Every structure is written in structure tokens, then in C-alpha cells.
Computed example of a mutant assay.
Amino acid sequence: MTVLLWVPVVSLLAWLWLTLAQGFFWRTDQRLPAARPVARWPEVVVLVPARDEAEVLPVSLPSLLAQRYPGRARVVLVDDHSTDGTGDLARRLGQAGGGAGLALTVTTPPPLPPGWTGKLWALRHGVERAGRAEYLLLTDADIAHGPDSLAALVAAAEGHRLDLVSQMARLRVETRWERLIVPAFVYFFAQLYPFRWSNRPGSRTAAAAGGCSLVRRTALERAGGIAAIRGAVIDDVNLARAVKRTGGRTWLGLAEQVGSVRPYPELGQLWRMVSRSAYAQLRHSPLLLLGTVLGLALVYLVPPVALVAGAVAGSWGAAAAGGAAWALMAGTFTPMLRYYRQPAPAALLLPFTALLYLLMTVDSAVQHWRGRGSAWKGRTYGKALEPGPGPAPD
């Protein structure tokens, strides 16, 4: 076998394995478990860490204050030393409802100490203000919730005895770059952390989505609290690992009533969103970076190249292997495109999107080597903060 033939054959074998043996990651049927009758609605505190979020709060915060929850619930927004008036805006939004919705408290944490990321330090402060509430809903400031979102999350946790219920918020796909990048972002995440594996008790795989995670307070305390993951840039996955490692049951799926309102109209904004944590995901390892680059190239770039090169060179075996691998790639991506209400033919662009993600990952490593680390909202986090606790996924 020539190189032109065996490389696409290996790529095709990789796609057969991914399609059949990687937890059926490509399926989009992991949705919130069916609700069961709740005998007593427990008290919930919604925690919103917010730093310079004045642009999105007018859309997201009212959706939280308007939750139709049968039990006691309130919202605590932790203004993480914003410079754009986030805290004052939040107070005005809380007063605008005239007391008809959930009560709102706006608070500010002490200055950020060494060894903590800003978001987790803000959450720790929020947990302290939450008192003895039975559940905590950790949700980002750019996430809007349907009016029954909180009740559905609690019903799932209570009815299925779950300690952590997390939903991957539906991200915006309005601009051409969002349509190209966002569905693939969720697809790649699910490929790395198959939801079925994460939701299976006893599995070593554990993952959550930081934008919407309902956690039982006792499970969080058993896992060591927010302090257990204080330096984790990828805080959602590390939280799920900590909860699962200490005997908790976790669940992760795609959202119906939860969505991000943050716009990413330009490629540069999406690039920074991905690159700020990509190298941290690889535990700042040059060897893992090399393996990731080679793996992405073999799995996503080889199929279309082999199809074209094989046809040009008259190597129809290589062309067939490349075409079959590309077809599997597009076929497994199509359900995610349907979830995001995008046309199925867009699945053929996944190799180009994967190339962008490859470059973003390399850029993330370059920024880390330059000492810029994981930069977000005016803060830069270096290698000393990572990794969080727990084993690597299956």
C-alpha cells in the first residue's frame, strides 16, 4: 500500500471507531430527563458571576428574575469588580420588576487572591451568600433562561436523584462566523466528553457546561466546595469531575430553554473564546499539543485531501477511502446542525472548521509560551492554575 492509500484508510478506520465506539457522541438526544412529581420544592439560589457584562445583562438577568419556580428561590449576582457599571445596572433591573419576580442581591467579592480564577472566586463568594439553600444554580451572565427552566432543572435533579444537572446552552448562530464555528464547538466538546459516558454512573468521564449547572449544595461541599477547583480555567469539567469523584451523580445534555445572548459577530471574537482555554485543556503539554495537531489533521483534513488527490493521481482506493471518511464526518455532524437549525450541506465544511480549530489550539499554546496564558476580561491565568482535580476522561 502506498502512503497515498494507507493514510486515508487509517482516517476511515478512525471515523468508523468514532462513529460506533465513542459513546455515540454525535447524537443529540441527551435532553433533560423527563420530570417526575416533586413532593417538596427545595430552596434554590441562582448564582451569577458577572464581570463587565452590561451589554448582555438587560436580556439575561430579567429572564432569571422572571422564573416560575414553585418553591423558594432568589438570585445573587456577584459583580466581579466590573468597570462598566454592571453592578448598578443589575440593581436597576432588579428594581424594574417591582418585586414581582425572584429577589435579587448584588454583591462584590474581596480582591482576587493568588491561585484563583476570577469566576471561581466570585462563585465562592456567592456560595457564602447563599446560606443553606439546598441547590445552587451556577449560570453565566450571558445566559438567558426560559420561564420554567429552573423548575425543570430541579425536577430532573429531584426526580432522578442527581447531584449535578447541567445543560449545554444553545449558543448564537446568527452571523456567518457563528454558523461556521459554534455548532462545531459543541460537536467537538461532545466528541471529547461523550454525554452518554458522562451521564453513566461509575464512568470516569465527567463533564458539565459552565453556563448552566444546578448542583446540590451537599454534593458541592462533599467535593471540597469551589475551593477544590479554584485554579481551573475549564471550571465546568473540573466541577463535574470533583462531584463525580466523591460519589455524586452528574448529568449533561443539550438545552431547550437555555441560550446564550452573547454575540460573536467576528472571527476574532470566536477565536479568542476557543484559544483562551484550548491549551489548558491539553494540560499545557507540548506532547499532547503535537498529538492533537496530528490527530486533527488525520481525522478531519486527510479525508477531503485524499479524495481530491486520489482522484487526480488515479488512486481510486485512496479517493474512495477519503470520500467514505468525509461522508461519515458529515453524517455525524448533521444532527448537531439540525439542533442549531442549520442546513445539512454545511456539514461538508467541517474540515475547514476543524482547520480553524487546529490553528486556534496552536495559537493558544503560543500565547501561553509568550506568558499571556488564558486571558479573559482583563485577567491572564498562567500554568500554575491548571489542571483541576480528577482523572482524564475515558
Results as ranks from 00 to 15, higher is better:
58 P>I: 11
58 P>L: 11
58 P>A: 10
58 P>R: 12
58 P>T: 10
58 P>Q: 12
59 V>W: 12
60 S>G: 06
60 S>I: 03
61 L>T: 01
61 L>V: 01
61 L>P: 01
62 P>H: 05
62 P>N: 02
62 P>V: 07
63 S>E: 05
63 S>F: 05
64 L>M: 14
65 L>Q: 06
66 A>G: 08
67 Q>T: 04
68 R>F: 05
69 Y>R: 09
71 G>A: 14
71 G>N: 13
72 R>V: 13
72 R>W: 01
73 A>V: 05
74 R>N: 13
74 R>H: 12
74 R>S: 15
75 V>A: 09
75 V>E: 12
76 V>K: 08
77 L>A: 10
77 L>W: 04
77 L>K: 05
79 D>M: 04
80 D>M: 02
81 H>R: 15
82 S>T: 03
82 S>A: 11
82 S>D: 09
83 T>I: 13
84 D>R: 06
84 D>N: 11
85 G>F: 07
86 T>L: 13
86 T>D: 11
88 D>C: 00
89 L>K: 13
89 L>T: 02
89 L>Y: 04
89 L>E: 10
91 R>M: 09
93 L>D: 01
93 L>Q: 06
93 L>M: 09
94 G>T: 13
96 A>Y: 04
96 A>Q: 14
97 G>F: 08
97 G>W: 06
98 G>T: 02
98 G>I: 04
99 G>F: 11
99 G>V: 07
100 A>W: 02
102 L>S: 03
102 L>G: 02
107 T>E: 15
107 T>D: 14
107 T>A: 15
108 T>H: 13
108 T>L: 08
109 P>N: 13
111 P>S: 12
112 L>W: 06
113 P>T: 07
113 P>Q: 03
114 P>Q: 01
114 P>G: 03
115 G>T: 09
116 W>M: 12
117 T>L: 01
117 T>A: 01
118 G>K: 09
118 G>A: 05
118 G>W: 07
119 K>W: 00
121 W>Q: 10
121 W>D: 09
122 A>K: 09
123 L>M: 09
123 L>F: 14
125 H>G: 11
126 G>L: 08
127 V>L: 10
128 E>F: 08
129 R>Q: 15
129 R>P: 00
130 A>Y: 08
130 A>I: 03
131 G>K: 07
131 G>I: 11
132 R>I: 00
133 A>L: 00
134 E>W: 03
135 Y>M: 01
135 Y>R: 05
136 L>H: 13
136 L>T: 12
137 L>E: 03
138 L>Y: 02
139 T>H: 03
139 T>L: 02
139 T>W: 01
140 D>A: 12
140 D>N: 15
142 D>E: 14
143 I>V: 15
143 I>D: 02
145 H>T: 01
145 H>P: 00
145 H>L: 14
146 G>N: 09
146 G>P: 05
147 P>Q: 08
148 D>P: 00
149 S>W: 01
149 S>H: 11
150 L>F: 05
150 L>N: 06
150 L>H: 06
151 A>R: 15
153 L>M: 05
156 A>V: 10
157 A>L: 00
160 H>A: 10
160 H>N: 03
161 R>C: 00
163 D>M: 12
164 L>T: 04
164 L>H: 04
165 V>T: 06
166 S>C: 07
166 S>A: 14
167 Q>G: 00
168 M>E: 14
